[in-house]
């Protein structure tokens, strides 16, 4: 009989199990009621099965989010792993929804599930994309906003993976600052 090698039937395990969440803005419901867990996966093959099955970000209506977080971390500031953390934030122009949004989100997902941030990958909690008519946002969330070394390492690798030129600066903001801001912008704690 033909012998089938294990690499032909064993799926490729990821370092972490991940959960994909979907948020749809319904003003008649609470924020938490608008947040739904879509599915969890922990292999490369199951990631693609899910990714290929769902809508691209650019097809979502304004007010929707996708969040990908490590299993056990909820995609909200209040979670124990997020409450002292912050995010590397990319703000996209309206034009970039057509040209860049889906590409950047997929690259963000691949960075996370592939553990692209080396020994600092443990600091990455997840990522969020906000689809908004005024401008879409993509962010990588990390667990501790005081962990400068990990945060700047993650930021540099992320910027490199997105192919952003050196003159483009991205900023990291703590969730506390974002939650308590008074104007429309939050001050950057770090930049790369």
């Amino acid at each position: 009989p033909e012998i089938v090698k294990p690499e032909h039937y064993i799926k490729h395990p990821l370092q972490n199990r991940w959960a994909l969440w979907f948020f749809k803005n319904d003003k008649n419901k609470t924020w938490q009621a608008n947040l739904r867990l879509i599915s969890k996966f922990d292999t490369v093959e199951d990631f693609w099965a899910l990714y290929n099955h769902i809508q691209l970000c650019s097809n979502l209506i304004s007010g929707c989010d996708y969040s990908l977080f490590k299993d056990g971390i909820e995609p909200m500031w209040e979670d124990e792993k997020n409450k002292r953390g912050g995010r590397w934030l990319l703000t996209l122009s309206k034009q970039q929804r057509k040209t860049d949004l889906d590409r950047i989100w997929l690259e963000t997902l691949l960075c996370l599930i592939g553990e692209a941030f080396d020994e600092h990958s443990d600091d990455a909690c997840g990522a969020v994309v906000n689809v908004r008519n005024k401008g879409d946002k993509i962010a990588i969330w990390t667990t501790d906003c005081e962990n400068r070394e990990s945060i700047t390492y993650i930021g540099r690798i992320y910027k490199e993976r997105l192919g952003l030129p050196p003159k483009v600066v991205i900023g990291y903001q703590s969730h506390t600052d974002t939650a308590t801001k008074s104007g429309s912008t939050t001050k950057n704690k770090y930049v790369v």
């Binding site: 395990p13 990821l14 370092q15 093959e45 290929n52 592939g114 692209a116 990958s121």
Partner: peptide, 20 residues
């Protein structure tokens, strides 16, 4: 060790049907 995968490796599986 850590299970790390680079983007090309991951992208290589996008259109491979789920195994047997």
């Amino acid at each position: 060790g850590k299970k790390r995968y680079d983007r090309e490796f991951l992208l290589g599986f996008q259109f491979i049907p789920a195994s047997i």
